[in-house]
Simulated scan of single mutants.
Amino acid sequence: MEIQNVTIEDAEELLDIYAPYVKYTAITFEYDVPSVEEFRQRIVNISNRYPYIKAVDNGQIVGYAYAGCFKDRRAYDWSVETTIYVRQDCKRMGIGRLLYDRLEHELKSMGILNMNACIACPEQESKYLNDDSIRFHSRLGFSEVGRFHDSGYKFNQWFDMVWMEKMIGEHNAEPKEVWG
């Protein structure tokens, strides 16, 4: 398995991974699957500043991860929001850990200090959502720092959002500028 940078040519294959999450889960609160062109634009926008990577196994993309803007204010430059998706038939094979390990390494090299993840959370497990993502992030060293109750509505039910964070660098009085 190789970890590589995503290109706009990967949009269709990434969208094939993402679409089932939109259609059949509350993992994303997006209601409609984006078009390939919209997904290409998302890749361009994210890749202009942050890492956007993919896991490739035998020539096929099996997962992807990226970092994005946490908040659009200069004081937040050292923090990012992370996102990860793995092909549904490839879960629990170590792909997510490989992607996040590489993502964390790249973010550290940029001067990023905080990785944040906003994760949909069920009050009770259902066919649309379980707590796998929360457990995954916990195993990678993320800690829960906040919960927003009934903040997302999909499939005729309400879901909570949990914020998790991982500090990946030293916080001091004069942090290095972030580059990207």
Rank of each mutant, 00 (worst) to 15 (best):
L98W: 14
L14C: 02
Q60H: 04
P175G: 03
K91A: 00
E13F: 01
K154G: 07
Q124F: 01
P51L: 09
S126F: 13
V6K: 04
E106R: 14
E13C: 01
N156T: 15
V145E: 02
F159A: 09
I61T: 06
L103G: 05
F142L: 13
V162S: 02
G59A: 03
F148C: 09
E123A: 10
G94Q: 14
A67I: 01
I95P: 03
G146T: 05
I95K: 05
V22N: 04
A11Q: 01
L129I: 10
Y18V: 06
D77F: 07
N172A: 11
F39P: 01
G94A: 15
E123R: 13
G63M: 08
S151Q: 13
D89G: 00
C118V: 09
I43Y: 09
R87M: 00
E125P: 00
E38M: 10
S143Q: 08
K127Y: 05
Q157F: 14
I119G: 02
I53R: 02
Q124L: 01
F39S: 03
V6A: 14
S109M: 15
Y66I: 09
V145F: 01
F29V: 13
L107H: 10
Y128W: 14
V44T: 04
H137R: 10
R73Q: 04
W158V: 13
G152N: 12
D77M: 10
E9G: 00
H171T: 07
D160C: 08
R73K: 06
M1N: 01
L129Y: 09
K154W: 14
Y153E: 15
K108V: 13
R139H: 11
W78P: 02
Y100N: 14
D72C: 00
V162T: 05
F136T: 04
D160T: 06
F159H: 11
M167G: 09
V86C: 09
R102A: 15
V44S: 02
Y100P: 06
F159L: 12
A19L: 12
E104Q: 15
P34G: 07
Q157T: 15
V86D: 12
W163G: 00
Q157G: 13
C121Y: 14
K23T: 08
R92L: 10
K54M: 05
Y21R: 09
A173R: 11
R139Y: 12
V178T: 13
L113Q: 05
P51V: 01
P20K: 08
N130I: 10
G152M: 15
S126D: 15
M161E: 10
E13G: 00
N116K: 07
N116D: 08
E2A: 07
E125M: 04
A65Y: 06
S143H: 08
I8Q: 03
Q4W: 06
D16R: 06
K54P: 01
I27G: 05
R73M: 03
Q88V: 07
S151N: 12
M115D: 07
S109I: 12
K71R: 06
W78V: 02
I8H: 00
R42A: 11
E104G: 13
D101W: 11
Y76W: 07
M1H: 04
D89H: 05
L129D: 04
A173Y: 12
K71V: 00
A117M: 04
V36Q: 01
M93C: 09
L140S: 13
R42L: 11
M161D: 06
G111T: 10
M167E: 14
